[in-house]
Write a protein that binds this DNA or RNA. Structure first.
Lengths: 163, 163
DNA sequence: CGAATGTCAGATAAACTGATATGT
DNA sequence: CACATATCAGTTTATCTGACATTC
């Protein structure tokens, strides 16, 4: 009723439900990735590289909604473990294109399977159509907020092309 | 096709979309709450207390999906600023029922309005029915994961009664 | 120059685990 | 005793901001 004034009942609040779902997914992913000694941000980076090889640190940062500095740390960790490689220098520009190493590709495949299981478990109660609708509507909401929050609108200048 | 093996395209991954929506909402809430000098966890605690006054630290922790220790810090901050109050002792048991102070109630009203604006902005592209469906399906997914992740199933023994 | 990038350094926020004490 | 609670202390993780050099 007085939706104009407050957020209403908690279980009707987007924030509450989003937080709940996020925490549950994050925890389940932690469990699934622990055997591989991968953190969720590390996995996200590998996944991104698997789908779009050769991305620079800055591009990866935008793709996972964190700062360059944060992604830099993630990359350093992955590089030390030999999961990704980057040229020390480049002929043109400053961007250093990152690649999965063969070992990185193997780890990614395992991780991706494990995470896939988690995601399917999460979506299991919904029909395929309901799943599609959920993902679509969620993306729409994210867009709506991003477009109407000034400081966010310019935070990710060029949203990753094909997404 | 090989959905049995990987998570598929990123923009079709629950995790990706959830992260994206979560980051966008969190950032927008930060902006909305900054004038009130409230963090998101602090706001969440106030909101919970507004709807279910007298909850103990442990209950609030369960209600916001964090540990007692984390909630304890939040409560200490809110208490120092005079937004909530708790008896120093109790006649029976250890649980200290927390209450919003009059000032806390005023701050919560303002915060709730600001956050409500953010949430409505986020949901604006969807019809009312679509919003309801989104919230419902999201909750269903969270339940599915929580039920099937052993360590999570027991993390929140008694899910907050009415939710 | 301005803009994007990479990276170093330090700071912070928000969560965690572990341990201890109290109360039923 | 088992169990839930409160709370102290230390730690970790994932962020962030600031600064500076490099390259177009």
């Amino acid at each position: 009723m007085c939706q104009e004034e407050t957020v209403g009942q908690l279980d009707q609040a987007v924030g509450y439900v989003l937080k709940r779902a996020g925490v549950a997914l994050r925890a389940a992913m932690d469990v699934a990735l622990r055997p591989l000694e991968l953190t969720v941000p590390q996995y996200a980076c590998l996944e991104l590289l698997g789908q779009r090889p050769g991305q620079s640190n800055a591009e990866l940062a935008r793709g996972t909604f964190v700062t360059r500095q944060s992604m830099n740390q993630v990359l350093r960790g992955l590089q030390e473990r030999g999961l990704v490689s980057r040229p020390a220098t480049t002929a043109h520009g400053r961007a250093l294109p990152t690649q999965l190493t063969p070992h990185g590709q193997r780890v990614l495949r395992t991780a991706s399977t494990a995470v896939g299981r988690v995601q399917r478990r999460m979506l299991a109660p919904l029909t395929f159509d309901e799943q599609q609708r959920l993902l679509h509507d969620l993306a729409t909401c994210a867009d709506a907020l991003t477009d109407t929050t000034p400081h966010l609108a310019c935070a990710w200048p060029s949203p990753p092309p094909s997404w």
